[in-house]
């Protein structure tokens, strides 16, 4: 794997997105899925929420250029659309830190090389508050040490082992890893009654 696919640390300015259970329909509404590519998705991130709330963080000048998204609980629930992390990535998001993540969203983000770190609820609050007051400050998402640093404070974070290893070794694009099994794949298939024939 090439060195530029290794995700040891993500450093950048933050953008807070308060609220729990933010589903992928809100991140990118279904009508923008009508395309055979992911191109241009960044223009529609949270588009309906942004129209309804002019002060939505993604509308605010002070957060433009941010690359670390701070979220609440169960972020990315709902539809499995990879368009959601793709849209965030194309907008500029490189890492996400929050209270918890829906499983498919977490996997989709990891598959795009976007680490999703989990921190304690009071730390989510602190991060959101601090970023809102100091949007210019850099956040460090430390994938290796499972920590988040902002200013002079470092808080513990969690990332499941599997995702962590994939990000640290640059193997988050699973296809190549899976292909290594070679004929082992067909061997398993041959033992399955429904493929071998009953």
């Amino acid at each position: 794997m090439s060195g530029d696919s290794v995700r040891r640390q993500i450093v950048g300015r933050g953008i807070p997105l308060p609220g729990n259970d933010i589903d992928t329909d809100r991140i990118i509404p279904a009508r923008f899925l009508k395309s055979v590519t992911f191109e241009g998705l960044e223009q529609h991130v949270f588009v309906d929420d942004r129209l309804q709330a002019p002060d939505h963080p993604f509308n605010e000048d002070r957060y433009q250029g941010a690359s670390i998204l701070v979220v609440g609980l169960n972020f990315g629930c709902g539809s499995s659309r990879e368009h959601a992390p793709e849209a965030l990535k194309r907008w500029g998001i490189r890492g996400i830190v929050g209270g918890s993540f829906a499983e498919i969203f977490f996997g989709n983000s990891t598959a795009l090389g976007i680490p999703c770190l989990t921190v304690a609820p009071q730390d989510v609050e602190w991060l959101m508050g601090t970023v809102a007051h100091h949007p210019e400050r850099e956040i460090v998402l430390d994938v290796e040490a499972q920590r988040v640093r902002l200013g002079d404070r470092t808080i513990p974070a969690r990332l499941p082992d599997a995702a962590r290893k994939q990000l640290l070794t640059g193997t988050w694009n699973a296809t190549a890893v899976l292909l290594e099994a070679g004929e082992g794949i067909e061997r398993v298939a041959k033992d399955l009654p429904y493929l071998r024939g009953y």
Partner: peptide, 20 residues
């Protein structure tokens, strides 16, 4: 299992998924 598009690619290419 419901999967994302990168995993659709994985299954097409390898008939496998990496899963916990």
């Amino acid at each position: 299992f419901g999967i994302g598009t990168s995993q659709v690619r994985d299954v097409l290419a390898t008939q496998c998924l990496a899963m916990a």
